Simulated scan of single mutants.
Amino acid sequence: MPDKSVQCPRDGRALVLVVEDEMMIALDVQMMLEDNGYRVLGPAGSVEGALRLLEDTRPDVAVLDGNLRGQPVVPVARRLRSLDIPFVLSSAYDIFTFDGSEVLAGAENVQKPVSERRLMAALERVLS
């Protein structure tokens, strides 16, 4: 279950930014989140799309794929860190070796394929 202590002003449910370039995975993650009481921002399938969403809306947490059609998610992670918004990774990769990947250090990776149990537990940890 999600951490109920995290409250959003509108309806009391945490808002999660989903950044995932594979639409079927994005929709699956969105359904998992909504089934567990979260609201979803996105999903965004690109770095640019995610950054546009962050211009207008401040999520409580984010779920990030590490590699978006060959482009590292680093700019999104940097923006989230600058806003003090926690995030978890949802990536098939264990180690990120691209430039700027140090911004991902310390972020929990729930791996792919995404397990609902692992995702919910990770979100509860970063939101507590």
Rank of each mutant, 00 (worst) to 15 (best):
M24K: 03
M24H: 03
M24S: 00
M24I: 05
M24C: 03
M24T: 02
M24E: 05
I25H: 02
I25N: 02
I25M: 04
I25E: 00
A26W: 00
A26P: 03
A26S: 04
A26K: 04
A26L: 02
A26C: 00
L27F: 03
L27D: 07
L27K: 05
L27G: 07
D28C: 05
D28V: 09
D28T: 05
D28N: 07
D28A: 05
V29Y: 03
V29M: 06
V29R: 03
Q30P: 08
Q30H: 07
Q30V: 07
Q30C: 07
Q30I: 08
Q30N: 11
M31W: 15
M31N: 15
M31F: 08
M31I: 12
M31T: 13
M31G: 13
M31D: 15
M32H: 00
M32R: 02
M32L: 11
M32E: 01
E34A: 11
E34N: 09
E34Q: 11
E34F: 10
E34C: 08
D35V: 04
D35N: 04
D35F: 02
D35H: 03
N36V: 11
N36T: 08
N36Y: 10
N36L: 09
G37I: 08
Y38L: 12
Y38D: 12
Y38C: 15
Y38E: 14
Y38M: 12
Y38N: 13
R39T: 08
R39K: 15
R39W: 09
R39S: 13
R39M: 11
R39C: 14
R39F: 10
V40D: 15
V40A: 10
V40H: 14
V40Y: 14
V40F: 15
L41P: 02
L41T: 01
L41Q: 04
G42V: 15
G42A: 12
G42D: 13
G42T: 14
P43L: 13
P43K: 13
P43F: 12
P43M: 13
P43N: 10
A44G: 06
A44P: 02
G45Q: 11
G45D: 15
G45H: 13
G45M: 15
G45F: 10
G45I: 12
S46E: 04
S46T: 06
S46F: 05
S46H: 01
V47C: 02
V47N: 00
V47I: 09
V47Y: 01
V47P: 00
V47M: 04
E48G: 03
E48A: 12
E48C: 07
E48S: 08
G49L: 13
G49A: 09
A50Q: 07
L51M: 06
L51D: 01
L51S: 01
L51G: 05
R52M: 13
R52G: 10
R52T: 14
R52I: 14
L53F: 02
L53V: 03
L53N: 01
L54I: 11
L54P: 00
L54F: 04
L54T: 07
L54D: 04
